[in-house]
Design a protein around this nucleic acid. Structure first.
Lengths: 218, 218
DNA sequence: TGTACATCAGTGAACGCGCGTTCACTGATGTAC
DNA sequence: TGTACATCAGTGAACGCGCGTTCACTGATGTAC
């Protein structure tokens, strides 16, 4: 017995099929080359039916960004569970300092890379179209990026306070951490010869340098 | 009296007009939305004449990347003239260390931002299409990026040796420096509300953190 | 319970448009003799 | 010097195609009475 709710769910399912079709096309042709007809065709509906779900392609694009936001929020939540920042003393050996810093950077990078691998199409769209040609998408992506940077900044602050470590310019660090991992993530998606393991380790090294540079020795 | 040379120059002029037209269209619509006809129209020639210069759009794209390489090589050459790395002693005050590091990062970032401002369309193309949908362009851009990273790595090595400073992971640093400035550059191009001065200073701070982290105190 | 009406996701025909590509052509210039 | 031929950047007509969008329609389901 179908109800109004069932109908809504059916419509939602078709919308999601459109988005999934769009993601697969994006992976090959890029967002800018999407056409309403190709998306509808891939999703198995008539071109005109597209309008029952979105007024135009960009409206679907913005919805895709919203779904990327969900994935990225989950990424940060998952990373937060694993990150720690053991107390660093002024006379600690460099190796010990690095180890403490890597308690942040390794979970951060590894969680991120794993999220990239599981959601490569969505993440590619997100980080690629940040500077793409659709203003609507750019704006949506910048908003989400700002929020992510904010959350990461808070988390870094919390980690510092927890064990009385000190870092300089925390919001700048958060921004740069995201820049570094997204650059590495994009490289991994786009280069078919990329080895995830190598890229992950190189990413961690880069993040380590950044945090070491920000560490204030009292 | 026209010569064979004059003819070649005339052809070259038209090719450059096509590229210029393509860059202007890219700035609005993005590389993926370029069409042979729109480029020819903007350049003021018949659509069919396009084929006298390039076999397809991507062949022109690759030529555009080659021109970006010229600009970026010039950028590094210019930055090299201005960068220095005064000797850092183990017991130097942090402020003095930062000042020495900033003798690298400030000329580097300021030169880069100035190049971005003067060649925004070419640089946008270069850094945007690094992960774009055309494999030909991606490959060309990755080649150039690798070369740039190599040159910057050598230069950092030279700067270190000059005054007996020590940096860890120099090639990783070179790579990350380029990641950071290109991310900032793209943001500057794409955000109409961006203030070049603010972005430059933030970029320098980010680069400083990175180099501080790589500095080996003996 | 039955009947009349409302809602709404999905459809198929039709439109005008810009696209990439082909083709045979033009006309300016250079080259051979 | 003059003449015949070669080269080649640029042209305009024509093609078939996929595009976004409109429109009136269908048919399944929910709602009112």
């Amino acid at each position: 017995m179908a109800s109004r709710n069932d109908l809504k769910k059916q419509k939602e399912k078709t919308s999601q099929a459109l988005i999934q079709a769009a993601l697969e096309l994006c992976a090959n042709e890029g967002y800018a080359s999407l056409s309403l007809r190709s998306v509808a065709r891939k999703a198995g509906i008539a071109p005109t039916s597209f309008y029952r779900h979105f007024r135009e392609i960009d409206e679907m694009g913005v919805e895709m960004v919203a779904q990327a936001k969900v994935v990225l929020d989950a990424f940060l939540a998952q990373a937060q569970k694993k990150m720690s920042f053991p107390a660093i003393k002024n006379n600690d050996a460099p190796a010990k300092t690095v180890k403490s810093i890597e308690s942040i950077t390794r979970p951060f990078a590894e969680t991120f890379i794993s999220v990239i691998e599981k959601n490569s199409q969505l993440m590619h769209l997100f980080f690629q179209e940040k500077t793409g040609s659709s203003e609507a998408l750019r704006d949506a992506i910048f908003d989400v990026t700002d929020q992510l940077t904010g959350v990461l900044t808070e988390e870094l602050n919390r980690l510092c306070q927890e064990n009385k470590n000190n870092l300089n310019d925390i919001s700048l660090i958060a921004e740069t951490m995201l820049t570094i991992v997204s650059a590495c993530g994009l490289e991994m998606i786009v280069r078919e010869d990329a080895k995830p393991k190598t890229i992950t380790e190189r990413t961690i090294l880069k993040l380590n340098l950044l945090l070491q540079g920000a560490l204030i020795h009292e």
